[in-house]
């Protein structure tokens, strides 16, 4: 199977809009079918992006989800069918279902954010907002670079300290550990601030602030990306207009019947997955052609 993920290579605007929409819909809609569809789509895409990573993610999520779905009924005694009583409070079937739905929408938010982190890296984010918020996006780029650099410098400082016999181990007292950390941090501050003056002067000398900024990712929307964006917006409009997303859990469970709106929503969620499948089919056809 082709390892490339076509959606990740799309214009950042398309990716950003996609994630914004699915995450917002995922946190807001509480129709069980919609939540389930969101979970399946986010899990599937996460699996496509990370492979084995999906399993570890699910293992980590599972206890949290159980906690969320079982805790909610404890605080929400409304509902018709009482399953059991804990400390005199009713634990009802309806609020348990509601708890599952809440856990589901929590899970898909986490999974979508996991995909977001892989697809929309820092440089793409700043290229998207570079002209809207020039100073802030430059700030973000610098911080992202400096975090790596300063971690490295901090390690050097700690090594140097242990080289002159001031290293720290598990045997030292808490007080010593604390003072050691503070000294290292203080040294790091000196080093980093000294560098900041040099960098600032150098930026000024090279003409920072004169004229418009350019980006590392400089590209426009291609035809295919326009089509994808339009299709996406069309599906979104269909989902929102056709409705059918309401669900009530108290006092009895009542959900809207599923219709075309749900299909549109599924299509919306499936955009990156369909693109990936299309890519791998094309790849197989090309391989057989050789």
């Amino acid at each position: 199977m082709a390892k490339r993920d076509p959606f990740s290579e799309y214009h950042p605007l398309v990716c950003f809009l996609f994630f914004l929409t699915v995450i917002l819909m995922g946190t807001v809609v509480r129709h069980p079918a919609y939540v389930l569809a969101g979970c399946v789509a986010s899990g599937w895409y996460y699996g496509l992006l990370k492979g084995r990573g999906l399993l570890t993610m699910l293992l980590r999520l599972l206890p949290l989800l159980l906690l969320v779905s079982l805790l909610n009924p404890l605080f929400n005694p409304r509902g018709e069918h009482v399953l059991l009583r804990i400390f005199g409070r009713a634990f009802t079937w309806e609020s348990l279902c509601f708890g599952f739905v809440t856990a589901g929408s929590f899970a898909q938010t986490i999974l979508w954010f996991g995909c977001y982190n892989t697809v929309l890296t820092g440089d793409k984010f700043t290229s998207l907002f570079g002209n809207l918020i020039p100073a802030l996006s430059l700030l973000l780029v610098m911080v992202l670079r400096m975090m790596g650099e300063q971690t490295r410098k901090l390690k050097q400082i700690l090594h140097a300290r242990s080289g002159i016999g001031k290293g720290i181990t598990e045997q030292n007292s808490r007080r010593e550990k604390l003072l050691h950390g503070m000294t290292a941090l203080s040294a790091l501050t000196d080093r980093a601030l000294e560098g900041s003056i040099v960098t600032g002067n150098s930026m000024k000398a090279r003409g920072y602030g004169c004229g418009r900024r350019t980006n590392f990712h400089s590209r426009r929307l291609r035809v295919g990306e326009w089509l994808c964006l339009l299709l996406f917006l069309f599906l979104l409009a269909l989902t929102l207009c056709l409705g059918g997303m309401e669900a009530e859990f108290e006092p009895v469970i009542r959900t809207d019947p599923l219709g075309l709106g749900f299909l549109a929503y599924c299509g919306l969620l499936g955009v990156p997955i369909v693109l990936r499948i299309k890519e791998s089919i094309l790849w197989h056809i090309l391989k057989y052609g050789i």
Binding site: L139, A192, K204
Partner: peptide
């Protein structure tokens, strides 16, 4: 903000 100020905040 001036270049130096920006870099200082970033640091």
């Amino acid at each position: 903000p001036k270049a130096g100020e920006l870099v200082t905040v970033a640091v």
